[in-house]
Amino acid sequence: MNHKNALTPWLFIGPAVLLLIMFSLLPILVSLLISFTDIDLIGLGNWDMIEFVAFENFIALFQDPLFHRSIFNTLVYVSIGVPLVIVCSLSVALMLNYMSNKLFSFFRVLFYVPSITNIVAIAVVWGFLYNMDVGLFNFILNSLGLQNVPWLEHPFMAKISLIILAVWKGIGINMLIYLAALQSIPRSFYEAADIDGANKLQKLRYITIPSLSYATFFVTVTTLIGWLQFFEEPFVMTGGGPLDGTMSMALFIYERGFQYNEFGYAAAASLILFIFIIVATLIQFTFNKSKEN
């Protein structure tokens, strides 16, 4: 009676596993292979034209000033953006956790909404807000008696502008993760602290923040991985400009691959990005382990 067909589990996991092999695992192998070739649009049409070039793509990348630029920009995005997202989402979560009533639930929705709205729509709207001449932000600055800011016209300022927009979008989801973590801290911790006469700041420093260390770890890793792949914002708003000031690694890969059709070269660049992501994740994991010990 209880005999189970050995095929049954595969019927359930089959479709998903097949699609994952096809579109996730196999592509990694293909990517590895083609990064050692000079495949382009001609090679795509006629495989005989593809040549094995060993490490030439990687050597060329190490000498490509635009690729250097994209790595530098990506590191700027990550090192400013990730801490900012964590600080902002944690502070919003702490404030939202202070009370629970209708107004606070409304705020929770409000802060979450940017993270589910379409990134292209957001970029289009912010492009208007950032506009040098008719944008709302410069108008507000002018009415406060301040100078126009070249939001998207200056290579460094443009990076900052894109970061502001991405932080605005990134708060929501991380805030929810922090809120869930805050609500799972046992009340007895705070009661014990009250008995010991701890003040609010001490409770925050010695109970709340340490209890959130796992949430912070999770948020840091996912945000870091996300920001290393910074793509849509520069793609829609600046196209990587001005003067390649907002060119990210992901945008570099996209442009090389799909505008210049240098598939081999782009695949090599994407593998370097992959290594960045793996290294960043490993550092986070070891850091977290050593903290736990």
């Binding site: 589990p9 996991i13 994952l20 579109f23 990694i28 990005l273 992959f274």
Partner: peptide, 28 residues
């Protein structure tokens, strides 16, 4: 089962930028 499940989880690590070129070639 364990091996397949780990392989499934491992695909989470693969960024879209890495798979987009080979997937395009495969689709082609």
């Amino acid at each position: 089962k364990e091996a397949v499940f780990i392989a499934v989880l491992a695909t989470m690590m693969i960024p879209a930028q890495v798979s987009m070129i080979p997937v395009y070639l495969l689709l082609n």
